[in-house]
């Protein structure tokens, strides 16, 4: 009972994100914003480049968030946030949180240069990538965050995505930023805790949120949370933090689930032959071992 009560209290009641936004049914990205804003509150400025959220917040003159939102060009999320943050500091505002909020295309691909620049300078921003593993806003084209094996409109079934998802988290860790975390919308307490921690740290904070997309993944909108949970239970997307170079894995599944079920729930993987599924399983297991070693050596 006590444990249950504590869990409830760890999620702030106030809803900053309001109903009436334009997300698809079962959208992981809208939940991601909901939880992030619950943690970060209203003393915040958020910039959003081209991505689903450029639409989700609502068309002019509407906004579903009721916080200052700045829509920016595709590759500029980090640079605009750097400008806001450094600008505010120049006029003595040290309290307002500045967050860049971008999709995987805007982060892994077209925005990586500006992101790398901001991280190298250690500008005081929170950078969130809500990762739905393809260009969903433009109609499901592959990005460098699209996983091996996946169908997208530019990696059709006969030519499904071959090659590994870019390990952006390691790239960001290599920048020596003070805080990096992965989060999943199926673990709101964990996610909110990470945003609260990030808000207290000066410098560049990078939060990689796993955000299922029923539209692009051809999955049942009712199963979004389930998928976001399974991705952690299968070790495909481990929840961990890197604070000043120190790794900490937040959830270590006792019995790692096989990924068959996770794949079977998504139309984007239905063409995969058995040997590809085995290859995926083997590689994800290897990557998990590497992460364990990182925690062991740099924990």
């Amino acid at each position: 009972m006590n444990e249950k009560k504590e869990l409830r209290l760890s999620i702030p009641k106030e809803e900053v994100l309001q109903p009436g936004h334009l997300a698809c049914q079962g959208c992981g990205a809208s939940l991601a914003m909901r939880y992030a804003l619950k943690a970060l509150g209203r003393d915040i400025i958020v910039d959003i480049p081209a991505c689903c959220w450029a639409v989700i917040d609502g068309p002019f003159p509407y906004s579903a968030t009721n916080i200052p939102i700045y829509h920016t060009a595709f590759e500029t999320a980090a640079a605009v946030a750097s400008g806001v943050s450094n600008g505010l500091k120049a006029i003595g505002n040290d309290h307002t949180t500045v967050m860049a909020w971008a999709g995987d295309g805007g982060t892994f691909d077209i925005g990586i240069q500006a992101l790398s620049g901001a991280a190298e300078r250690n500008d005081d921003i929170i950078y969130t990538v809500y990762d739905n593993e393809a260009y969903m806003n433009t109609g499901i084209q592959r990005s460098s965050a699209t996983p091996h094996g996946a169908w997208t409109t530019t990696t059709p079934v006969k030519h499904y995505r071959k090659g590994w998802k870019k390990d952006l988290d390691s790239i960001m860790v290599a920048h020596g930023i003070p805080y990096l975390a992965t989060a999943s919308i199926a673990y709101p307490e964990d996610m909110i805790k990470k945003y609260l921690k990030a808000q207290k740290i000066k410098g560049t904070k990078f939060i990689h949120v796993y955000a299922p997309c029923p539209t692009g993944w051809k999955s049942d909108p009712a199963m979004t949370i389930h998928l976001a949970k399974m991705v952690v239970e299968t070790n495909i997307f481990p929840l961990y933090e890197v604070e000043n170079g120190k790794y900490k894995i937040n959830i270590k599944p006792k019995n790692r689930k096989p990924l068959d079920e996770y794949l079977a729930m998504q139309g984007r993987f239905k063409h995969l032959p058995q040997e590809e599924i085995e290859y995926l399983q083997k590689t994800f297991d290897e990557k998990w071992e590497i992460l364990l070693k990182k925690e062991e050596h740099f924990g």
Partner: peptide
């Protein structure tokens, strides 16, 4: 590109 983007951010914040 980032120079102008950063100026856009700062100027939008009233600086």
């Amino acid at each position: 590109h980032s120079a102008m983007a950063a100026c856009i951010g700062a100027q939008a914040a009233g600086i």
